[in-house]
Write a protein that binds this DNA or RNA. Structure first.
Length: 557
RNA sequence: GCGGGUGUAGCUCAGUGGUAGAGCGCCACGUUGCCAACGUGGCUGUCGAGGGUUCGAAUCCCUUCACCCGCUCCA
């Protein structure tokens, strides 16, 4: 393990400790021992996450001007909001593909302790002589063994990989590969009746695989108090489908014209097998998603536009561009109808150097989603998937979700660009980026380490703290007056008269408060207070009657 | 789900079978008065949870939960 990674691990531990100590994040149900994959936001964390959500909503929706063309945008466009329900008609998830995809079957190898996706495992029947030495004697028995030799190798390399595994299993050198008698072509493992005949990819003997077990990644619940099996419903695993199923409602009710976007912030739920890395992978999480609907011919331009705009959003709120990457998915990773998908990823401290974790995916989804809800679940070739009777496997709504452009006299199913961000991941990234330890002189000029959250002022949970320098000579009253004024003006502020002034500054540094205002001996003489900056520690004197105004202007964008 | 590690005060940790501790923090009072000050006093624990062994368990054993690391997974 590199030193870099060790430092980063300590750094992550320190961030987690700070989050708990100062009330940003707690483990859910902690007094009962906690639940894996669930987190609670404390008083400061709630403010921080709310600020992240608000910044997103303001920047994407409420301050959006559909009459003007934004910088680098192909043309003006409208943005509207939506709040759809968490539980939806079960058919939504069948047509979206989540129902089939989230029912993965997995097998475990009891020898190698590896777990494999059952539907990805392939193999060939083979037969060869195998020498076995019985225990406790030198007697060697030679017997002809038949087995199903498996591999997880995708694509064309599977055959070579199976051969290598077979040589290992039969104890043969590669020059004797002719001794293996192949009894079948490459087959999916689901084609064999008895898993005891299979040799797992990293096993040395047969029959180490467990029976396939289902991992349902969607949380299941029941509609109605007496609901039976037919009343099964699911907590949504993404917010996007709530937008697609309301596409027609929005078009019919809000006078929006294509191109336009529908934005939504809301909770989603995935029963992750391994929640890990603080709030990065949680089972309950919040998404901030836009589904942007446009003409198919313009979709590539819009994809470029959203990809770049969303990347810049993170840097505009203080994440250094060198800690972010815009990772374009390879062509092989893409569904073939998609022009592109890009992940905006952040160098989280819990990852190794050079590794990044996803904050947001920007995907070109073509007309896949709307058509699936019209016609039924589509396969990767955009054909409706059929069952054994030649009927749609999952029937769509049958409703027409196409759009009619009455100026061009053209009807089409819009293409979709989907910038889908994780609110909790974003919040965590802003916290990680802001966390810094620096050295500042104490009252004797000796350097002391300081923990500071250099949060962007828009995101800081507390915008300003107001202190009386000492607890007498009328200073607390003046400070309290400023505090009241701030609260009335809607500025999130704290009042603190406890302890030495230096300690109070450091307390605020640790929670990322950008500005501290101190009422001192001079205040009574000339009606000024000091304004101290979190990052530079510089102080300047501001007239007391201008202080609210001054803070508001410094918080402005 | 597997393997390894960890779990003691708000935080960081000491405590290997015999009365639960330290530092930091927090609170009060006094002094000082612009960057983690000093003095005095105070607060905080079902030792992660449940069970067992024992005269006696934070300590030994079993089960379980959570966190960290490595696998696995990640539409």
């Amino acid at each position: 393990m590199s030193n870099q990674k060790k430092n980063d691990e300590n750094r992550m531990e320190q961030i987690v400790a700070l989050c708990k100590r100062r009330g940003f994040l707690f483990q859910s149900s902690e007094i009962y021992g906690g639940v894996n994959g669930f987190w609670d936001y404390g008083p400061l964390g709630t403010e921080l996450k709310r600020n992240v959500r608000n910044a997103w909503w303001e920047d994407m929706v409420s301050t959006h001007d559909e009459l003007s063309c934004l910088e680098n945008a192909p043309k003006p466009f409208a943005m509207v909001g939506l709040e759809s329900s968490i539980i939806m008609h079960p058919q939504v998830w069948k047509c979206s593909g989540h129902y089939d995809l989230f029912h993965d079957f997995m097998v475990d190898c009891t020898e190698s302790k590896k777990r494999y996706r059952f539907d990805h495992m392939r193999g060939r029947w083979a037969e060869a002589e195998r020498k076995t030495k019985s225990e406790g004697s030198d007697e060697v028995t030679v017997e002809t063994v038949k087995a199903f030799i498996t591999s997880m190798e995708p694509g064309e390399e599977v055959e070579e990989s199976i051969t290598a595994n077979a040589l290992k299993f039969f104890g043969l050198k590669s020059k004797y590969r002719d001794k293996i008698n192949w009894l079948s072509e490459v087959l999916p493992i689901s084609s064999i009746d008895n898993l005891q005949e299979a040799v797992a990819p990293e096993a040395t003997r047969k029959g180490t695989l467990t029976e396939p077990r289902e991992f349902n990644l969607m949380f299941k619940t029941t509609l109605g108090a007496l609901g039976g099996a037919d009343d099964a419903a699911f907590l949504r695993p993404e917010t996007a489908q709530g937008i697609f199923v309301n596409f027609k409602n929005v078009v019919d009710s809000s006078r929006v014209k294509i191109p336009f976007g529908i934005a939504q912030i809301g909770k989603s739920f995935r029963n992750e097998i391994t929640p890990r890395n603080f709030t990065f992978r949680s089972r309950e999480f919040e998404q901030m998603e836009i589904e942007f609907f446009c003409h198919p011919d313009e979709s590539s331009q819009w994809y470029e536009y959203w990809r770049n705009r969303r990347f810049n959003w993170y840097t505009s709120l203080g994440i250094a561009a060198e800690h972010l990457i815009l990772r374009e998915h390879h062509k092989e990773e893409l569904a073939h109808y998609s022009v592109g998908t890009a992940d905006i990823e952040y160098a989280f401290p819990f990852l190794s150097e050079g590794e990044y974790g996803e904050l947001e995916g920007v995907a070109h989804r073509g007309d896949f989603d709307l058509r699936s809800h019209m016609e039924g679940k589509l396969d990767s070739d955009l054909n409706v998937e059929l069952n054994e009777h030649g009927q749609p496997k999952h029937r769509g709504s049958g409703k027409d979700l196409s759009y009619f452009d009455d100026q061009a006299r053209e009807r089409f199913v819009p293409h979709v660009i989907e910038p889908s961000a994780g609110a909790d991941r974003g919040t965590l990234a802003f916290l990680c980026e802001a966390y810094q330890q620096d050295e500042q002189p104490d009252d004797k000029g000796k350097m002391q380490s300081r923990t500071v959250l250099k949060l962007h002022p828009r995101l800081a949970p507390v915008k300003a703290a107001i202190f009386p320098l000492i607890k007498k000579e009328g200073m607390p009253e003046v400070a309290a007056k400023i505090y009241h004024e701030f609260r009335e003006a809607g500025i999130s502020a704290q009042y603190d008269q406890q302890g030495a002034i230096g300690r109070r500054y450091r307390r605020q540094d640790e929670i990322g408060t950008p500005f501290c205002i101190t009422v001192d001996g001079q205040t009574a003489d000339d009606q000024t207070v000091t304004l101290r900056d979190r990052d530079t520690l510089k102080q300047e004197r501001i007239p007391i009657n201008k202080v609210t105004e001054e803070i508001q202007s410094r918080l402005g964008r």
